[in-house]
Every structure is written in C-alpha cells, then in structure tokens.
Nucleic acid binder design. Structure first.
Lengths: 219, 219
DNA sequence: GCCGTTTAGATTGCGTGCAATCAGCGCCTG
DNA sequence: CAGGCGCTGATTGCACGCAATCTAAACGGC
C-alpha cells in the first residue's frame, strides 16, 4: 500500500490536469478528503506540495484554488523552461550513455508514428512519449534540484493539452528537433544540445501563444 | 500571533543556517516540536517545506536529515543560480523603477562601508545587505515562480557563511559588480545586466570552490 | 565467531476533535 | 440609499491518540 499522501496528491493533480477541477474553483479540504477517501491530514500535505509546484494557490483561511494562468504567465514559464531545459541538455551531453540515446532514438520513431497524419494519429500518446523523451534528458543531467525545478514548470503545459494545438508543420519541426537533439547528445556537444533544446522549447512557446491569441480573438 | 508553522519553519531553518543542526544529524519530529514549543503537526509541514527548498531530506518512515553538500553539488547549485539570477536581472532591467535603483545605490555604499578593511568590518552585515540588494533585483523581475526557485538555491550559500571566505580583492570585485549592475539596470540594458549578474555569481562560485579545495587540502 | 532471525522500542503516518479565524450577510445608522 | 458594524456559519489550523512501519539490538543457529 502506498502512502495516503501520494494517493491524494496524484488524485488531485490528475483532477487538475484533466480539467475536472477548473481554474478558480474552490477546493475544500473536507471535500477533497472525501474524494480521495482519506482524511484531511494527507490532503493538507498534498495541497502544500501542489502549491509549491504552482498548480494551486492556497490563501490563508480562504482555502485552495486552482491557479489561473494569464498569457504573461505562460510566456514567463516557457522562458524559464527554455533556460532550464537547455541547461539540462548541456549537462546531459557530457553524461548520457548510449543505452539512453538508443532509447531516445526509439522514442523518436514511436512519436513520429503516433504524430503522423491520418487515422492512426494519437496526440495523447505523443504527449506521453514526449514526456519520457524529455525525462531521459533531465535524468541524464544528473541534478536532483534541476529536476525538481523543471517538474514545476513542465506540468503546466499538460493542463492546456499542448499537442492538440500543434499544426502538422509544428509537429514535424518538433520531431526534427528531437532527432537533432539525439545527434547532439551522441556527439557529446553541450553547446549544440543546449541550442537545439532552446529552439525546441521556444518553438513550443510560439505555438501556445499563437493558439492563445486566436482564442481570445475569436471571442 | 503568527502561524505556528511559520514559527517552526524559521526556527528550524535558523538552526540549520547557523550550524546548530549539522549535516547528517537526525531531526526527530518530537524533538523539534519541543524545541519550537508547538506540536508535531506544524513541524511536519515546516519539514516538508524545507525539503522542497533542499535544506533537509526526509526519507519515508526514517525521518529528516540535514542535507550534506558535496563539492559537485556546490558547483551545480552555483551554475543554476548564475543562470537564474542572470535571467532575473534581464527581466528586471526593463521593469525596475528609479526608487529601487536609488535604494540599490544606497545599499552599495552601505556594503562598501561594512566590507571595508579595518576594525569596522562586519561581514555578517555585508551578507544581510547583500541579500537585500539581490532581493530587490529578484522582486523587480516580477516572477513569483522565479523567486521561489531562486530562494531554493540562494539559501545554501548562507549555510557556509560565504562572505567570510572572501579576500579583500574578492570583496572589492563584488562591490564593483554591484555598482555595474545598478548602472546596467538604470540603462535598461537587459543583456548587460544579465552578463554582469552572471559574472557576479560565477565569481562567488570560484571563491567558494577555492576555499573548499584549500580546506580538503589542509587535512 | 559470524550471520540470519526475531522481538522490542521508537518514530512516523494518519485520523479525529476542538478552538481560532475569516467570509458572507443582514441590520442598524447617518 | 449607501456605508459601517456585528453576528453566524463554515473552514482552516493545531493538538493529540493510535496503529503501522522501520531501526537496532538481542538471541539462537550454523
């Protein structure tokens, strides 16, 4: 049996990421305790953790709310992420082993298959594989602090289901970045890897901002 | 009356920073509860928070220990900090107001007075003023996430009483960096500010690594 | 004598009760 | 009718108790 805290944490986090708890909605401790079938104590701890990761904000004596992101927040977070991921890629270039790069090549193929146009397209699977791909880079960077920080800024894009906003061209470019990143890592070239990763994240930021702009426009 | 959690948090944090709780020592919840004159509940929350900030590590069912830093950790943290502070300085350059830069100039003078050689030297006061100086930059960056991340990597140097390892030349260079940073911010030049801040932090890293090397050597 | 096993002690993790605090709202007053 | 104030209901924050789990030491077997 796992710890009740982790159980509550995953459940609440899942609820936010899948959109069950929409931004601004009030999350009572008692309510969440009932939902997770535990008591208020583990729920409290889970909420504190989610607060640190920026997914919820708790106001003293006013409870917890799911954080609502503005366009400026999005931009800021992606800039931060670009920097951190680039840093991780740089470190990974001099530490990663061939078994990891092999796996990454395999992931590239799987992603390209799932992202390819047609009936077989499965963008949620792309998101999943993409997460593993980037997870390998971060793990290879060998820095627990860096991983912690990245987790905080990486969870956000999941909330808005980033990949569903990618055009075919965007997807193709993303895959090309992945291939290039593997090449840079294999070559052990930190500067190259850093640069590619930076492009990769900033391209994702552009996609998101474009999508956000067209959304507000259409209202 | 402040919240018991904050009270416990500050007290434990203080204990670690002043060296009362040395790395590796086991911190029992009951023991800390007695020390902070509260119950175990707020102590638990404070420990979780300190864990996220990297000051302690709690192992499931095995309690909390003060984290022990290796030289590699130090290097990694300073590289991270250099990047994050540079990012903050960049953003601050286009947002900071003249009242803040004026205050920073005042702080420069105070720091130089406290750092000056002779009987009046007070390195702990330098550390304090330096913290305010950098705090202004981070606040001007206008990013709560960035501030959170920086807090995690900035607390560490306090543990090892960084400034007591600075040579007179190191101190002079540090003050020069401060002056230059204010100039860059006043000019609204993000790239300049970024570059100066990067130099500033990397210089600090060099001082610390040099000190660490001579320490291990002398044993 | 060394190692695996078991048991006792201690400590954490979790559940629940109670009191302090705050948000919302109706009432009173100017 | 608008603004301020006190009241009430609900929610959080904290303390404490109990059970599950782990550490460490003592014991027995090889």
């Amino acid at each position: 049996m796992v710890r009740a805290v982790d159980h509550a944490y995953s459940l609440i986090r899942e609820g936010i990421l899948t959109g069950r708890h929409t931004p601004g909605v009030r999350l009572g401790e008692a309510e969440l305790a009932e939902l997770t079938e535990t008591s208020r104590t583990p729920v409290r701890e889970a909420l504190r953790q989610l607060e640190m990761e920026g997914l919820v904000e708790v106001l003293p004596h006013r409870g917890a709310r799911v954080t609502a992101w503005t366009a400026a927040d999005l931009e800021e977070i992606y800039d931060l992420r670009a920097m951190l991921e680039a840093f991780a890629a740089d470190r990974a270039a001099s530490r990663i082993g061939s078994e990891d790069t092999d796996r990454m090549t395999g992931l590239c193929e799987l992603i390209e298959a799932a992202a390819g146009p047609g009936a077989g397209q499965d963008l949620d699977r792309v998101a999943e594989l993409n997460a593993e791909f980037h997870g390998l880079v971060r793990a290879a960077a060998g820095s627990t602090r860096l991983v912690t920080m990245l987790n905080a800024v990486v969870q956000l894009p999941l909330v808005v289901r980033t990949f569903h906003r990618y055009s075919p061209d965007d997807l193709a470019r993303s895959c090309a970045h992945h291939r290039e990143l593997v090449a840079a890592l294999r070559a052990g070239d930190g500067l190259w890897a850093r640069s590619v990763m930076r492009s990769h994240v900033l391209a994702a930021k552009a996609v998101l901002l474009r999508a956000a702009a067209s959304e507000t426009e259409s209202r």
